[in-house]
Write a protein that binds this DNA or RNA. Sequence first.
DNA 1: TTGCGATCTGGAGAGGTCTCCGTTAACGTA
DNA 2: TACGTTAACGGAGACCTCTCCAGATCGCAA
Lengths: 176, 176
Amino acid sequence: MVRADARENRARILAAAREAFAEDGDTSMNQIAQRAGVGPGTLYRNYPNRDALVLAINQEEIERLTGSVDQLLAASPPVEALRLWTIDLVAAMRAKNGLGDALSPAAHKAITEQSYGPVIEAITSLLDAGKRDGVIRSDAEPGDFLQLTGALWRAAPERTESILALILDGLSVRPR
Amino acid sequence: MVRADARENRARILAAAREAFAEDGDTSMNQIAQRAGVGPGTLYRNYPNRDALVLAINQEEIERLTGSVDQLLAASPPVEALRLWTIDLVAAMRAKNGLGDALSPAAHKAITEQSYGPVIEAITSLLDAGKRDGVIRSDAEPGDFLQLTGALWRAAPERTESILALILDGLSVRPR
DNA sequence: TTGCGATCTGGAGAGGTCTCCGTTAACGTA
DNA sequence: TACGTTAACGGAGACCTCTCCAGATCGCAA
């Protein structure tokens, strides 16, 4: 049983965090707590660290991304679908402050059901489609791919396309 | 003209930092300052941030790495040389706390002559050798490659080889 | 309605990075 | 040698993330 006041606090924190991040992506946890009218302790009780809060705030964005996979696969060949999806993902990582870090595999010794898991599943779907068509190496690992996207959003935006092309090339099956 | 006491302080800081990092890779800047017998202000005057200090401490390791390129290229074909060198680099990034971050291109809007620059040069040599032999794409960028190594040291150690293989594959010229 | 666990709260504070700036002391000059 | 200039010093402190826990509060059972 979740106490009513606790649930309400949680909602207030989320709302405050959304507002704060919208105004300034560099908002501190303390500022968010203050804005929500709770102490830092309460903030951290609900979201054990910054990454957790960032993931919670961007939940919808992540659902949009993971939800777009089927459509992309229906409209494009697997590798192209993967390329388009990844560009979308990287754009989100850049736009939403801290999202790239929060989704990094390093942040998830214990995997987050709500966010990290679905993203890995989305990548798995995309890779599997390519494997079925024989255009993506059968040993390609979703976790490795997500790890590599880290290089994409950290790089200068104008480098994104070429680095991604390189990664996709490495994932592709060589013509014989 | 550098004041004598300043030069001595600089040396003491470096020595203290080396010791401190050897004992515990997570040493704080304050601890290092204290150990060196200077105030935090003096520490930061000499090394404007943690990355700068980490680079200074690992200067020799970086020189060893950049110095090993010629030998590798003499002994192995370019792609294999690049592979071996990168494994060495990634091992160093993992072993020396903070070195991976400090060498990340993101940390160098203003490039560090002493450390970051030479590493880029080393990568350039390795890539150029491959380009001359027609086995590496002529549009391969050293900065992009360094960016991608970030994914290597951040990943679990047992994933290093396979992710690196993928990157090298992406860099290679496709057989026709 | 009241009582009483169990749950939740908030803020003090530990320990971090890094800045600011009044004070100190090195060193060229006379 | 004495002095003025000025680079260098160091610590107080701003602001950060995150922890700990004494006390407040909720909601079930009687």
